[in-house]
Structure formats: structure tokens, C-alpha cells
Design a binder for these strands. Sequence first.
DNA 1: GATGATTTGTGCGTATGTATG
DNA 2: GCATACATACGCACAAATCAT
Lengths: 225, 225
Amino acid sequence: MKQPIIQKPIPYYEQFYHSLKAMIVEGTLTPGERINETQLAKDFGVSRSPIREAIRVLEREGLLVSDEKAKVMVYQPTFQDVEEIYQCRQALESFAVRLMITAAETDETAQIGLVLEETRQAIHREAPAQEIIKLNESFHNHIILFSRNNRLKRQIDELRSLMYLFRTYNFTGTERALTIEAEHSAIYREIKAGNQEAASKAMIDHLEHDLSYLKEQLQTKALII
Amino acid sequence: MKQPIIQKPIPYYEQFYHSLKAMIVEGTLTPGERINETQLAKDFGVSRSPIREAIRVLEREGLLVSDEKAKVMVYQPTFQDVEEIYQCRQALESFAVRLMITAAETDETAQIGLVLEETRQAIHREAPAQEIIKLNESFHNHIILFSRNNRLKRQIDELRSLMYLFRTYNFTGTERALTIEAEHSAIYREIKAGNQEAASKAMIDHLEHDLSYLKEQLQTKALII
DNA sequence: GATGATTTGTGCGTATGTATG
DNA sequence: GCATACATACGCACAAATCAT
């Protein structure tokens, strides 16, 4: 008989890749901070080999960058980077909306409606910011998922992990939450109506507003180059 | 005085990354082919450490894939993968066209006209297929470049390296070359006219046709899953 | 600058798991 | 099923470059 569960050991380089990535996106390591192979190896109680492999991958992803002397540090997005990332999101997510309108089942569309309803309730009861942020992300995630294109999802995820570096600045208070919810609802209405053009446009506009707001936040808080 | 040129040694892991990537996209290694760290280390006369780091990166890029037993092989796109990649290209490149119309200088637009003129001449004198393919790529590259968004370029490059795995099947003969040139010209006309909507649409249609043609080729030649 | 301490790049050995006969 | 050969994961050591004092 087959064993139902055999726990194959996950290689250190893979485990560490996830750990380090989490440390970066969660802010344990701050943008610009120097990464030290030897130190990390000590901290995690492994040799430098798996550490190095994970670092190379995160470099490729853009979450780590290395200078000309091979010193590695946490990616620190510039103002221009933020704009470029948002433009890419506009390209990919507006297309995802189009695909979803073509591909999604009606009950899937309804699921997005439920997410929005949940969001409204969360705002109403003044839920913690983290919860509202999660619901907003969930809205975008559902659209990407229902577009039924894994490659598209991967590309957006890549941008997303970079965005996490400044995501906490992108939400403050009930007023902002209501604005976002309204824009999400506008996108949702066009999806339900099956209007590709309008839905796509609504997504582009939403991300445009999101970017404007974020830029304002970043500027007033002088958080970025 | 500063030395004008100091050749810093490029790390093996980086050199090998480029070598292996080239071997994959140029077809020296065929899709599905097994990758052997030890063998490659011998072939290149280095130890396995830098080889492993490069392999991890190429895995992340999607040009290599590993099975559950950590065996690595060259990525073999499925039929669905091809469709997904083309949809992503549609999203990104149609957006690049929009950005270019906003951002490009008039002489940059003219450069694209020159590429098209060169292409027509090359077709007319029945230049080698490789040359025409290069010119067609150049058309797309120029648009991406003039969109002035490095992140967008990176995302498209990622798709492109995957596309190279089947690019030779995407061009056969003068007739096809003329069709492509006509579609490129249509895009160019809309760019010159500054019509974002129409230019973006023309790009999407062009890639749609390209995909149809490619699918046909792949099917008749039974080259893909 | 010069010197010792770090840090990275790389080779190599070993253990464990996998394929092959 | 078993033994042998091989492949991968990982630790470790050393050299060269870099940093710090």
C-alpha cells in the first residue's frame, strides 16, 4: 500500500528562499539594507551554499540588487520604479479583466461581488487596516485567477512582491478605503455587464488613482528617492 | 589618475548563466532535455557551485524546470503555455504602444519607419529568414524601448526568452513575411497618427494572428504537447 | 597606506537519495 | 530485490577582493 503522506525534505535553498523573501516583503529587512551571506548562514544554521542559491534567485526577481562589488542589498524602489511598476500593473490587470469577462463562469463573477460586500462590511465596522488591505488584494486576486492565465498571474505576482515593499503606505483610513471600494465596485459593475472596454478602462483608472495617492504618500513622508 | 578600463573578472556563475541560457534558446539543448550539474561542470571546467547558482536562476526564469525529484530539464512549453505567453504579450506590448505614443519623440517614431523600410527591402531581395526575423524583432523592440519603461521591457524580455524556444517555427517564406510587414505597418500608421486606441488594437490583432499562425505550424509539425 | 578582519567566489568531499543492471 | 553507479544537497576550506582600523 502506498503511504498516504511522505514528507519529502524541502531543500534548504528553497526554504531559505521563502524565509528571506518573507523577511524582505514584511519589512524585517529594510530597503537598501545590506545582505551578508555568512551572517545569514550563521543565523539559519546552514552553510553558505543554499544561502547563495536563494540570493541569486531573489536578485533575479529584483527583490535584491547587487552593486559592482558584488555586495547585495534589499531593493529600494525609486520614484520612477513605482511609476513603472504601476504601468505594468495597468497593462496586465486591465487585460486580466478582459480575459475574465471572456472566460469566467457566472458564479465566479458573483464571488467577486461577495468580496466587495465583505469589504463594505469591514469598512463599516472599522476593521483593522490589514484586514481591509487583504480584502482589496483579494479583489484583484480573484480577477487574475478567473482570467485563467497562469503566466499572467506569475507576471503580476512578480510585480506584487516588489510592491509589498511600499504597500503599507498605500492605505490610510476609512475615507481612502471607501474610495477604493467605490472604484472596485465600478470595475465589478462593468464585469457583470460584460463590457470589456469599460471594465478594462475602469481598472486602468483605478490603478492610476492608486498610484497618485501612493505618490502623494511617498512624497509627504519622504520615503523614497 | 583613474584607469579608464579595468576588466573586472565576471563571476563564473554569471558567465555560465549566459552560456546555458544561450544553449537553451538557441536549441543546443532541446526542450525536455535533462540537465546534469556534474556533467556541465566538467564541460565548462568549473566546479558545481557556480553551475548550481545559474541553474536556480534559470529555473526561476522558467527556462528550466525541475520535477519532484529535483531533476532539472529544459522547459517544454505546452500548447496552453504558448497561448498564455501570447496573451501576456498582447497585454504588455499593446500597452507599450500606448506609452510610446505618449512618450516618444517624433524622430523616434521615424526610426520605426526606417526599420519597416529596411524590412520591405530585405523581403524584396529575399534575404535569409534569420535577417527578416531580426528585423521583425527590431520593430517590437523599438516600440518597447520608446515606451520608456524598463520594468515593462524586463517583463516582455522574460516572455521573449521563453518564446525563443519555438520562434523558428514562426516564420516561413516570403508570403508570411509580407503579412507580418503589413501588420507592422498598420501599427506604425496608428502610432504616427497618435491614435492610442487604434494602435493598441492593431498590436493585439497582430499578435493574435501571429499566435494563430504559430499554432497552425506547431500542430502540423506536431512539435508540442 | 599597511595590516588584519570580513566577505565573496569557487573547488571539493561526503551523505543521501535515485537509477540501472 | 540488491548492489553498484550516479546525481543532488550541502558543508567546509581556501584564495582573492574588500573593508576597517
